Amino acid sequence: MSGTRFLLVAALGGLSFPMVKLALEGLSPAQLVFGRLLLGAVVLLALAGLRRTALPRSGRVWGHLVVAAALGNVLPFMLLSYGERTTDAGLAGVLVGSTPLLTLALVTLARVEPATRRKAIGLVIGFLGLTVVINPWDTVFGSVAGQLACLGAALCYAAYFSYVRRYLWPLGLAPVALIAGQLCVAAVLQAPVALVLGGAAPSLTGRVAIGVVCLGLLCTGLGYVQLFRLIGEVGATTASACNYLEPVFAAVISTVLFGEAITWTMLAGGLVLLAGVAYAEGRIRVPGEPR
């Protein structure tokens, strides 16, 4: 079941990048994030109601949910929405694919998992691949700024994986209840941001509506419940590895929908990045290396 859940989370994560691209055709980043969070919260509240699952009652749990909402929803969603204004959806997917590397670093610093020589080497290899993907020597400042925003989102996701594993999963509460609470908090946090930074009135075309609905119902509502369960089943670092496949889904879907080009830097850098992560997790071994 974990393998199927892993693929589902990766597919929904990859789908989110081109859907953000669609939604930004008629919404500002702040409006898009609020709409996505609100739809996701409604879906999860309805699901919790159907299952007769009560929301958390402890103030301490809601405090953790505020942090989780900021790290897992509000901050990365805003960063990605702004980043994708000047970055192709496929490239944004590759950049967020650095989440496993960042997660490895964070869980090591937080002593959730021990540091090893293999992990350190894998992180360095991954960083080199990430540099090739960003390709800063062949872009203008605006593009680099958009790519850095996507990297900031990856860092938020890495912190979210670590935080959920350490503070929320051990509580033993129903994932539907926790994610419903998290998305409700995130929507409340995002509401004033949408009012202040909303910009022009929304232009809700069919394409924009499709993008927002897919983001809210699938990528956010369904995706975060499955992600939370995956973190509990296999751990923060392994769960974050779903980002290995997200660039693949994002690039393929973006190519089909928008005709975006897949450049050699994306392919070469992405392969090096993934190879670094695979080595860090022991999935690649060099000849003569002990098991």
Results as ranks from 00 to 15, higher is better:
A200E: 15
A159D: 03
V112H: 09
G40Y: 04
T99V: 13
A194D: 09
V188R: 06
R36E: 11
F258G: 00
V248I: 14
W169A: 14
T99M: 08
A186M: 03
G59K: 01
L50P: 07
L75P: 11
G259H: 00
L24S: 02
C150P: 08
T131Y: 12
V164L: 04
V67D: 05
V67A: 11
K119N: 06
G126F: 02
A209M: 14
P247N: 10
A251V: 15
L37N: 07
A241S: 15
E246A: 14
N73L: 14
A268G: 05
L71H: 07
L15C: 08
L102F: 12
T103A: 04
G152V: 05
G288Y: 00
L8I: 15
I121T: 15
V61T: 12
S58A: 13
L171A: 01
S143A: 13
L195D: 11
V112L: 14
L222Q: 06
L123G: 08
A105P: 12
A54D: 11
A261R: 13
A11C: 07
L24G: 03
R118P: 14
A105M: 12
P247G: 08
F258Y: 05
L45G: 03
E246I: 11
L109R: 04
I262V: 15
E246T: 13
R111I: 03
G129K: 01
V212F: 04
A105R: 05
F249L: 01
